[in-house]
Nucleic acid binder design. Structure first.
Lengths: 194, 194
DNA sequence: TCGAATGTCTAGCACTGCTAGGATATTTGG
DNA sequence: CCAAATATCCTAGCAGTGCTAGACATTCGA
């Protein structure tokens, strides 16, 4: 039986190796460089081995995305820890989100633009997905003021998403990224007193 | 000489036919279905003909995108025409933008996510691109209140962009799209009195 | 009428995601 | 300890992609 265990452990390690390799390669050269052949060469196995772990290429991207949601959930939970009051908590969590997107752009793309197959709102969504959204939603809803908390959370999230995606597209003045984030936070918080 | 003119006219017509075919196919089956072979079959010419009009596939997408910017500029200019006051003008132009994105999702993708090669802020940007942004910026800057108008415009645009993109991704409650847009508008306008 | 230029197509390259089938190694039963 | 059964892996290939060289008509200018 112990040999079975070793086999499964090695398999799990290789599984993670594939995910990590895909993520690193995407962050280095973009997702279009992440081909199955390239991945196979990097992990020093043949292509069919990859297909014994994942149904297809999209499943690899999705696995990277889920890992990204785990990390994002951790960052978002950590961010408002030392905050004093809901406004500070809100600012901290929004800043953490923006920092995450700026730090790992390819990972962010996998999570929010490439992995379109991932179920999001529905109950069968992977746990990290829900946790990340919950970690963002909690401090946001606190400052929703007179507005419906869920709608407010969705609007904040979408605005934040648009901000971080277009910031990296070279279509905005890059030196003013901080200003834009500050203004967005101010606008969202101003809604509290309406 | 008149034969030359006819030739060039036919060429221009075929040029437009390619763009229109690509756009229709993308709107029907998504951009991944828009292959050069498929386009060639639809316009009933061989593949090299396409490459005599466009340098590569991305150039076709970019041409569709530019056409999209022309239409968007028209819609955004038309929207605030009957508005009474800057608030109404702002609401109208933001609503027109959201309606445009919802009506032609594939076109919107070509403009803002696929055609990454299009220069945006720089002076060599195609005219329709500048015109569309200007048509959006003018009414937006009018309600920027105490904030820097350019930064405010960028924030409104990014927020709007995030709203329309995530609305179509199935990750938000679809029945509340109107509510989200209304709330976003309210929040942006509330910033005027801070 | 004849060479030249223009326009178009056939055929092919290198790449992609993906898979069937065979070869190889490993574990198991006698 | 050896052979059979099993699990593992790889070679080779398919169909499709973007893109292009070279052959083929067809039309044009002299």
């Amino acid at each position: 039986m112990t040999v079975h265990a070793r086999r499964e452990r090695e398999r799990a390690e290789r599984h993670q190796l594939i995910i990590r390799t895909a993520r690193d390669l995407a962050e280095d050269e973009g997702w279009e460089a992440v081909t199955v052949r390239r991945l196979a060469a990097l992990i020093e196995y043949s292509q069919p081995v990859l297909y014994s772990h994942f149904a297809n290429r999209d499943a690899i991207v999705a696995a990277v995305a889920v890992e990204g949601f785990e990390e994002l959930a951790g960052e978002l939970r950590e961010a408002p820890r030392n905050a004093e009051g809901p406004v500070e908590a809100f600012t901290a969590v929004v800043g953490a989100y923006a920092r995450f997107a700026a730090t790992c752009p390819a990972l962010y793309d996998a999570m929010f633009t490439l992995a379109t197959g991932l179920p999001f709102g529905r109950p069968e969504a992977p746990a990290p997905l829900k946790e990340a959204f919950a970690a963002l939603a909690a401090p946001v809803a606190e400052v929703s003021g007179p507005h419906d908390p869920d709608t407010f959370t969705e609007v904040v999230w979408t605005a934040l998403h648009g901000l971080v995606t277009l910031t990296r597209s070279g279509r905005l003045r890059p030196e003013l990224a901080e200003d834009r984030l500050d203004l967005l936070i101010a606008l969202m918080l101003a809604g509290e007193h309406v």
